[in-house]
Design a binder for these strands. Sequence first.
DNA 1: CGGGCCTCCTGAATGC
DNA 2: TGCATTCAGGAGGCCC
Length: 279
Amino acid sequence: MPELPEVEVVRRGLAEHVSSRTIRTVDVLHERAVRRQDGPLAAALIGRTVRCVSRRGKYLWLPLDDGTSLVAHLGMSGQLLLQPDHAADEKHLRVRIRFDDDGRELRFVDQRTFGGLMTAELVPDGFEGHIPVEIAHIAKDPLDPSFDDQAFIARLRAKDTEIKRALLDQTLISGIGNIYADESLWRARIHGRRATSGISRPKVAELLEHVRGVMTDALAQGGTSFDSLYVNVNGESGYFDRSLDAYGQEGEPCRRCAATIRREHFMNRSSFFCPRCQR
DNA sequence: CGGGCCTCCTGAATGC
DNA sequence: TGCATTCAGGAGGCCC
């Protein structure tokens, strides 16, 4: 389940291996893997040179030499792999991109097909930088140096919703999924169903610091548990290697107070929390 | 307009 | 043992 830290690990791996390379062929093996695309993906990509690899929240994009970009979202089970041309196709290989050189090919592999690729024009984003127009509505993520803490705190407190819903709202703050939402709320000792409007500014600021803390911790572990040389990035294996305090810990003692971690249904998924620490 | 529910999908885990 | 059901969840779309 790739969230911001896992996607950042992928970004770093890709940046090292696909920057400055020119695309020669594109094979789409599963139509669903291409989203919101105007015309064939191949037509938009062949002959283009990759400048670098950027990320916002859970979205990745490769700026190209014609002012467009190749945008990727891993969804639930997506992987971007760099493989030798002769390597056997993965069972869920969806898109194959070969370059105009002897290096490895880029493969988009996705079992559940919740992820996808598309091309999008780059549009100016603030004072510097550009962003694909299709994801311009995605908020900055908390590891972005230009993330505005005070604006985030004000917007969150003005919302009429529950705090966990707000953390998962990618137009308010991006990069947080179910796992990091639960972990951040546990660290901040806040129940996910608390009303955003009822949480003080300092408490929201503290929660934001816990979001950054858990992501930074995960990124440090992700960096060591993945082999960046091969970019065999698998969100699930990284997640299982991580030590979690709340998510998936139903029935286990809370590491802080020893109360039993509980699980509740929330938004058609699960929430894990400590009933004593998180009132 | 915005909150919040529904849906897409496949394979592992669970139930009987 | 085997078949059927449940569960996992990111985010666009849609309803109210």
